[in-house]
């Protein structure tokens, strides 16, 4: 019973904040709504017993990446509201049909089977040690690929920052 209440509160928060992110014209409000959204999804992870995933989501996304986002918006946008004509009208017009398509796909997936998808990965490892062992044995290749990707992004940022400076 209490699980259901918690689930619906978190789900409502997640959906509401996602709507707020899309609908608010003020970029700071949008970014803060995204933080709320990330937090409530972390709460859902917590309810599924994925404590590490929830903590990582809050630390990495809400605590680090979004802080940088809000920081950048504060520096770059001095006015309180973005005004003037929308420079990306075409993208905006494309968004509703694409969103509807995504909803359809999701509805299709949910309608096809309520349980885990066929051929799903083994159930989530219960302990952190097991998770780490899996990452460094079975999923070592994707893990290392991700680190290469992050390294490339870092080098790219350094290159861009240097060009502007000199």
């Amino acid at each position: 019973m209490s699980t259901w209440v918690a689930f619906f509160v978190l789900a409502a928060l997640a959906v509401g904040s996602a709507l707020g992110l899309v609908l608010r014209r003020n970029p700071i409000h949008g970014a803060l709504f995204l933080v709320v959204n990330l937090g409530s999804v972390a709460g859902l992870y917590l309810m599924l017993g994925a404590e590490f995933l929830a903590a990582a989501q809050v630390i990495v996304y809400a605590g680090a990446i979004m802080v940088l986002f809000v920081f950048a918006i504060m520096v770059l946008i001095p006015g309180k509201e973005e005004t003037g004509p929308d420079p990306r009208r075409a993208v905006r017009l494309l968004a509703p049909p694409l969103g509807a398509l995504l909803c359809l796909l999701l509805a299709f997936v949910v309608a096809r089977g309520t349980g885990a998808p066929a051929g799903a990965a083994p159930p989530a490892p219960a302990t952190l040690g097991a998770l780490g062992r899996l990452l460094f044995t079975r999923y070592l290749f994707p893990f290392e690929l991700t680190s290469v990707l992050l390294l490339a992004a870092m080098v790219g940022v350094l290159l861009l920052a240097r060009k502007r400076g000199s």
Binding site: L32, A55, I59, A62, G63, V67, T127
Partner: peptide, 18 residues
């Protein structure tokens, strides 16, 4: 009692900046 207590404290501290 949390399995990931250290990370929890760390996460809450990092949210305080908002």
């Amino acid at each position: 009692t949390l399995n990931v207590g250290v990370l929890y404290v760390f996460a809450m501290l990092s949210l305080g900046v908002y």
